[in-house]
Amino acid sequence: MVAHGIEIRVDTEVCMGSGNCLFWAPGSFDLDDDGRSYVLDPEVTDEERLVVVAGGCPVGAISLWRDGRRLDTGAP
């Protein structure tokens, strides 16, 4: 897999602990003991999948960034 250089940001104030991100990208996310998501390694998940994960966060807590710019993840 080619490195995609994406930075993942999770807004932990917004995250409600659905666990959806770690379901889709187990190597890139985990939940802490309070049920808040945190980022592991972005590079173990390919870009297409990361977009699904970010857009599929039920509360919109995940954003993807590359070279300082926010990527479009297909959800409003």
């Binding site: 409600m16 857009g55 039920p58 509360v59």
Partner: peptide, 17 residues
């Protein structure tokens, strides 16, 4: 692949896993 079959927002399905 995103969908709203499990709902969305803070009430998103608790039992989806």
């Amino acid at each position: 692949r995103q969908h709203v079959g499990f709902g969305f927002g803070v009430h998103v399905c608790l039992g989806m896993h």
